[in-house]
Amino acid sequence: MSTPSTQLEKNIEKIVPEDIINTLQSGYKVFNGDSEHLEDFLKHGGQLLRKASQRFTTTQLIIGVAVIASIAIIAVAKTSESDSEPSYE
Rank of each mutant, 00 (worst) to 15 (best):
T57P: 00
I68P: 04
F56C: 13
I20A: 10
T6K: 14
A52W: 00
S2K: 14
P86M: 13
A75R: 02
G64A: 04
S5W: 05
I15R: 04
L42D: 04
P86V: 09
Q60K: 03
S5F: 09
F31G: 15
V30C: 03
Q25L: 09
T3C: 04
K10Q: 12
Q47W: 01
G64C: 06
H37C: 05
E13G: 06
F41I: 00
I73D: 13
I15L: 04
P17W: 00
F41P: 06
P86L: 11
H44N: 13
S26P: 01
Q47A: 14
T79S: 11
T58H: 04
Q60C: 06
E85Y: 12
V67G: 12
I20D: 00
S53H: 03
Q7S: 10
I62L: 15
T59E: 11
V16R: 02
I62R: 15
K14L: 12
S82D: 13
S84R: 10
E36I: 05
L42A: 07
I74E: 11
V30N: 04
P4Q: 02
D40A: 06
L61N: 10
S26H: 00
A52E: 00
E9M: 12
R55L: 09
T3S: 15
E18M: 02
I21Y: 05
L61W: 02
Q54I: 00
K14F: 11
S70Y: 06
T59Y: 09
A75V: 01
S35N: 11
I68K: 10
K43W: 02
E18S: 08
K78Y: 08
L49E: 06
L42R: 08
N22Q: 06
A66G: 15
T23Q: 02
T79V: 08
K43E: 09
A69L: 05
N32W: 06
R55S: 11
S80L: 15
D83F: 07
G33D: 01
S70T: 08
V76G: 10
Q7R: 14
K51R: 07
S2E: 15
T6I: 13
M1A: 09
K78I: 10
R55K: 11
D19I: 00
F41Q: 02
L42C: 09
H37T: 10
E81Q: 13
E9K: 07
V16M: 11
A52H: 04
T23E: 07
G27E: 06
T57M: 01
G45N: 03
Q25A: 12
F56S: 13
A72Q: 05
